[in-house]
Design a protein around this nucleic acid. Sequence first.
DNA 1: ATGTCGTGAAAGTCACGA
Length: 281
Amino acid sequence: MRLATWNINSIRTRVARAVDFAVREDIDVLALQEIKCTPEQFPYAPFEEAGYHVEAHGFNQWNGVAIASRLPITDVRTSFAGQPGFAKGHEGPDAPLEARALGVMVDGVRVWSLYVPNGRALGDAHYAYKLHWLDALRTATAAELTANPGLPLALVGDFNIIPYDADNGDPGIVQGFSTHVSPPERDAFFALETAGVKDVVRPLIPEGFTYWDYQRLKFPRNEGIRIDFILGSDAFAEAVTAAAIHRNERKGAQPSDHVPVVVDLDFGAAAEDDDLPMIFA
DNA sequence: ATGTCGTGAAAGTCACGA
């Protein structure tokens, strides 16, 4: 299976780009973030003509997540357990949920397409929301893996966190003044490892950005940041055979400000390896 | 140089979010 994640920044504006990429790169499962539309508004036809079924989750022009798959999808979930909500004037436990999580089962793998809250500014209510959201994600992921030991599970998407200083090529993002690099955000990101998921792309691709702001020639200057990740459980990580960050998708007419991140999975490889001693016994 | 995108609502431009 080849799995990709891409913050597309409006699927209606970039549906041709998304489908072209999926077909050209032989993607089986494409997790999308920031579709910026409702399921009723989603441009399904180009995906279906290319052989992809789409599950979409969105309430309005903000946020929104989707998963397009050539393989059958089951067990669709539009939020994770304990996911906090947010809305102006509705902070607190009864705040309405945003469309930032979509989970499916596909070919035995649990895939979560995630759009982590941006945070906006240190001290902003949205920043506290971001940290609560990540803590709830950690709890929900730990619970899912505890209930299903050995489950191949992946958290994929735009985490809006720059884990390491080397992932920050944007001089406008400064420790002590900016979101995405603050210790509490980084702690929340690394705490996901305690739930049983780890970055499966970094060991294969140690360097490289996934996002460049549209403003101030950030892409030509390569002043990008690495904020899009694929975090996998042990059973998922063991099946990863290759990874890619498609920097070229930031080029050309009307690009998203993010590029796709891809992993190849071979769940047969481990079993075949286990069988080898039997074959030669 | 905050000065670019996308969306919706109202309107031929603005507010909002990133």
